[in-house]
Design a protein around this nucleic acid. Sequence first.
RNA 1: GCCGCAUUCGUCUAGAGGCCCAGGACACCGCCCUCUCAAGGCGGAGACCACCGGUUCGAAUCCGGUAUGCGGUACCA
Length: 501
Amino acid sequence: MPADTRVRIAPSPTGPLHIGTARTALFNYLFARHTGGRFILRLEDTDVARSSVAFEQDILDGLHWLGITWDEGPGVAGLEEAGPYAPYRQMQRLPDYAAAAAALLAMDRAYPCYCTPEELDADRKAQEAGKLPPRYVGRCASLTADERQAKGAGGRRGALRFRVPEGVVGWDDLVRDRVEIDTSNLGGDFVIVRGDGTPLYHFTVVVDDMAMRISHVIRGEDHVSNTPKHILLFDALGYPRPIFGHLPLILNPDGTKMSKRKSQTAVADYIAQGFTREALVNYFAFLGWSPGTEEEVFTLEELGERFDLAKVQKGGARFDRERLEWLNGQWIRRLADEDLVERLMPFLEASAASGEIGRLPAEDEVRSLLPIVRERIPTLASLPGLVGFLWTDELDVDPATIAPKRWDAATTREALAAARDRMAAHDAVTWEADELEPPLRDLVESRGWKAGDLFMAIRVATTGRTATPPLFDTLVALGRDRTLLRLDAAIAGLGTVVAGG
RNA sequence: GCCGCAUUCGUCUAGAGGCCCAGGACACCGCCCUCUCAAGGCGGAGACCACCGGUUCGAAUCCGGUAUGCGGUACCA
């Protein structure tokens, strides 16, 4: 039996949490949950120039927000470092890499390279011109001790290159079955430690995966061609190879690799637009995976129960925002009242702050609205757009928009006035949808009007919109005073036409 | 260029030799419901399973080739 299942997500804090990273994290998390294994988070921050703590924070916050929690990880974002293989941050593991590098050097599996960027660049250009695949020419591969000393004069350290042996490297990929790559296509001996002494990704990932006892490396398809390098390193270092699985990529709608240019790639953007964690997780899981049944809506926990890497698709999947929105709606309809209100409030606060709405409604008020708005908001951010007129004092309604197609201004004015009178007969106690509707239906019938026309005129006059939740529920939410006030304003706006009859 | 991978409705996918003249979902169209908008229900259109050739009594499913697409090709991760 293999050792305990241990998987990881190893984000690089060189940008905000990317949906591709989130999806890879999710698949690792689900795999761990499904197999009873552990999920580890490791920060790969060796690209010092591009890494920042702000990005670290964004990445860890985003994963937490999605509900993707790790069993072992670094101390950051207000968390304690946790786990038996700390530290979980590469820049704190430098001694490990140095030791591994020394071992490779001692075995002559790696050697110092003193080529300058200019030389390397010239090599590449020459190869390009000769239509040859770019590869390291091996200028420093067989330097004598004297030559090394000479090149390293003046304290020049040189980078460390790993000697790529001849042969074929193959592995049984968890999602793509057998993959084999000839080492002659790896681009020659590759650098594992920079001239300044900092280690490079291909090297650190192997040293860390071994140190942290990672059993399964589940990552994006873009790493397939890196895997032979990693396997070579595992072998050279005498480490057991983990099992690899390469996930299909999330693609832009046009089929190319997901990019900031063509798509929204930051998880934070989706959060800001009012997507729920449930919908995002649900959607990500279904990008490249399917339970094989016709069910579509799953919680994170249910996904963990069903998830199976063998059922993961091999080809990339295009990101389809429409489907995400549909799922978001599904989830908004499933959330408990309290929960939904709590999630809606920040968006209302933002709208109030931006002036989109005039005042911030209380939680109770929002809760009472739920029955009529819940199935009408595709995202948490769309509530103000639906019923913002409830929280705006001066409603600017263009009189020209009030009259239904079949009515002229005079009829509209007369109808609104009559309706206003009927409604004014109610006091605050009987100002209920059930009470408001019958009298207006009577009115419509006695005058030979169409209910839809009268209702639409009232709707536009009181909300300024042609699309709202059911009219009478809306008027109840608006309140008696404001309803009558807005009707009066509309009637006045329709001019001093003499009401007929 | 070279290496690798992929290819089922517009999109996400079901399908692991006969159950498939290919099922579901999103989007689209129509009808129902209905005071508008949604939601929901019902129905429709939409895939010669990339192409060619094999294997087989039988192929979307197995094998080969072609095409197309994508990924990789750094002292980035």
